[in-house]
């Protein structure tokens, strides 16, 4: 073989080797990109699943597709507001770590009960819990679900108190207010922090009605607006009409005292 031919073969071999290296690298990059894409898709799915506990699927999809939007919708929702009685005094009498432990146990148990009754915890406000029924998905039985949840929360509270007592810790007491009405559900907040929330007078009324549990010595108080949609098997006792801050007329309220078993 002549030196020219040898040189040509060497060049061709070098080119082939270069091409092979280039193809291998390309393939490696492609596979790395594919792995990253798979990982990203999986993360996105996990994220979507996680977010579905806090906001309706449709809202999540619109956020994923278009970025954060001013998404809002008028809805009829049953609102449950729960607040610990005498919590301020308790917070001054126990160690901070113990207090946090007691609170977390309380939130954990109450959240589970609310979820089991098809509600979702919208937010914790100090020692208070704001839960919504019918906000994430349509729910024609939202009032019954909220009432059942409230009764189950009081039962859970008694169980938690037995556990606290065994540990030598002070017992807790919770007042619950329920109201049904319309409001706006949507993503609210600043650019840095947005949350799915239900805003409007309905939430305020539920919180105010919860306050009345102390003065009426009732564990659970429901408004007339919610009571009229309740199953007749719930036992309610009419209470004197109450004036509530932010509402012009006095509102009819009832103590919810239990329900007949099915």
């Amino acid at each position: 073989m002549t030196p020219v031919a040898l040189a040509l073969v060497a060049v061709v071999l070098a080119l082939l080797a270069g091409a092979a290296v280039w193809i291998i690298r390309l393939e490696r990059d492609r596979s790395r990109l594919r792995e990253r894409l798979t990982g990203a898709a999986s993360d996105l799915q996990n994220l979507q699943l996680a977010f579905s506990r806090f906001a309706p699927d449709e809202v999540i999809e619109r956020v994923i597709a278009n970025g954060l939007l001013d998404v809002g919708e008028k809805k009829e929702v049953s609102v449950l507001f729960a607040d610990l009685v005498g919590f301020t005094a308790l917070s001054e009498s126990v160690e901070p770590t113990t207090l946090v432990g007691i609170l977390n146990g309380y939130f954990e148990r109450m959240s589970r009960v609310i979820t089991e009754h098809r509600g979702h915890v919208s937010t914790f406000i100090g020692d208070g819990i704001l839960a919504l029924f019918g906000a994430l998905a349509p729910n024609p039985w939202q009032a019954n679900d909220a009432a059942n949840a409230a009764i189950a929360m009081q039962a859970e509270m008694r169980d938690y108190n037995r556990a606290l007592e065994r540990d030598g810790l002070p017992k807790l007491e919770v007042g619950i207010g329920l109201h049904r009405g319309t409001g706006v559900a949507g993503l609210v907040g600043s650019h840095e922090l947005k949350e799915f929330a239900f805003v409007g007078r309905t939430v305020n009324v539920a919180a105010r009605v919860q306050d009345l549990t102390r003065s009426h010595d009732a564990e659970i108080i429901v408004t007339e607006a919610l009571r009229v949609t309740l199953d007749p098997r719930f036992h309610t006792r009419e209470l004197p009409a109450a004036n509530v801050k932010g509402v012009a007329d006095s509102i009819s309220i009832h103590a919810l005292e239990g329900a007949e078993a099915d």
Partner: peptide, 8 residues
């Protein structure tokens, strides 16, 4: 109506 309103 009662059954559908209250499932009971």
């Amino acid at each position: 109506d009662r059954i559908l309103s209250h499932l009971s």
